[in-house]
C-alpha cells in the first residue's frame, strides 16, 4: 500500500474512552476501516459494491474520493457516515466501533460528530437559511451560532431568506453552514458541486476549503471530477469496489484556482 495511507498505524485504534468528546487533533486517526466489503442483494443477484477496503482518515485532512459511478465511493461514504452497514469488515470512529452499532447509536453518532453535505442541498423549504442551520444546532451539544456558520460560508447577509429565494450555490452554502454549525469532527460531502455550474461550484468548494482550514474538520469529498482532486491533501481513487490508488498532493491548489 502507498506510503501516504499510513498516517495512522494499522491496528492502532485508540482505545481510551475519555477521548470521545475531545476534538480530534490534526494527525490523529479519526476513521479506520479494515477489510470492508459490501454486497447488495438485488433479488437473486448479488452486486458487490466494496471488495475489501482498508483505510485510515486523520483529523484535519481534506480527502477527495475519486472514481467513476459504481466504483463504491458513495457506499464507502455512507458506511463512514453511519447510514449504511458493511457486509463484513469493521469501521472505527476514534474508539467507537461503528460496525455492529445499533440504529440509535448511529443516529447519535451522526448527530454529534458528522456533518453531511448533499448533492441536492436538501434544505428544509419551510425554514429560512438561519433556521435550517438552527434546526441542527438546536439538537447539537456545543454548536456555533447559526449566524456564525452562515458568515463563514459568506452568507451573513441572507439569513432570513427561504430556500426558494436563493440560488443553487447559495443553497449549497447554507447546507455547508448547516453541516459545520455543530462543530463536527467529520464533514462528509457527496458530490457537493454535482448540481452546480463550475463557477458556482468553485464558490462552494472555497467554503469547504475555508471550513477545513479554519476549523480543522476532517473533510471527505466525493466527486467524479478529477479537477477537484487538486485541492485535497490526499486523493483516494476507487474502482470496482477497490482502492486503486491513494495519492498525497505535494502541493495543493486553492479552490479558487480549480478549473473543470
Amino acid at each position: 500500500m502507498d506510503e501516504a495511507s499510513s498516517s495512522c498505524a494499522a491496528g492502532a485504534v485508540p482505545a481510551a474512552s475519555d477521548r470521545v468528546h475531545e476534538p480530534a487533533v490534526a494527525g490523529d486517526c479519526v476513521f479506520s476501516a479494515r477489510g470492508l466489503t459490501k454486497v447488495y442483494r438485488m433479488g437473486e443477484v448479488e452486486v458487490p459494491a466494496l471488495r475489501g477496503i482498508d483505510l485510515e482518515l486523520t483529523a484535519g485532512e481534506l480527502v477527495v474520493l475519486l472514481g467513476p459511478s459504481g466504483s463504491g465511493k458513495s457506499t464507502l461514504l455512507n458506511i463512514l457516515g453511519g447510514l449504511d452497514t458493511p457486509t463484513s469488515g469493521e469501521v472505527w470512529y476514534l474508539d467507537h466501533q461503528l460496525t455492529g452499532a445499533t440504529e440509535q447509536d448511529l443516529t447519535r453518532f451522526r448527530r454529534e460528530h458528522v456533518g453531511f453535505v448533499f448533492q441536492f442541498y436538501n434544505l428544509i423549504p419551510s425554514l429560512t437559511a438561519r433556521e435550517n442551520v438552527a434546526a441542527v444546532t438546536e439538537i447539537a451539544e456545543a454548536p456555533m451560532r447559526p449566524e456564525e456558520a452562515l458568515a463563514m460560508v459568506g452568507l451573513g447577509e441572507r439569513l432570513d431568506h427561504f430556500p426558494a429565494q436563493m440560488s443553487g450555490g447559495e443553497q449549497q452554502r447554507v447546507a455547508i453552514a448547516r453541516a459545520i454549525a455543530k462543530n463536527p469532527a467529520v464533514l462528509l460531502c457527496d458530490e457537493p458541486t454535482g448540481a452546480l455550474d463550475s463557477q458556482t461550484g468553485v464558490v462552494v468548494l472555497e467554503a469547504l476549503e475555508k471550513v477545513n482550514q479554519t476549523l480543522g474538520t476532517l473533510t471527505v469529498l466525493i466527486t467524479h471530477n478529477a479537477g477537484i482532486a487538486a485541492m485535497a491533501n490526499r486523493v483516494i481513487r476507487l474502482s470496482d469496489g477497490h482502492i486503486v490508488d491513494i495519492r498525497a498532493n505535494a502541493t495543493r491548489k486553492a479552490a479558487r484556482e480549480l478549473i473543470w
Binding site: G81, L83, Q104, T107, R108, R110, R111, E112, V114, F116, F118, N122, I124, P125, A135, V136, I139, A140, R178, A179
Partner: peptide
C-alpha cells in the same frame, strides 16, 4: 419524505 430523510441523515431521531 426526502425532507424528513435528510433530517434523519443530519442526526434527527425517528421520534424527532
Amino acid at each position: 419524505g426526502r425532507e424528513l430523510a435528510s433530517l434523519r441523515v443530519l442526526g434527527f431521531t425517528h421520534g424527532e
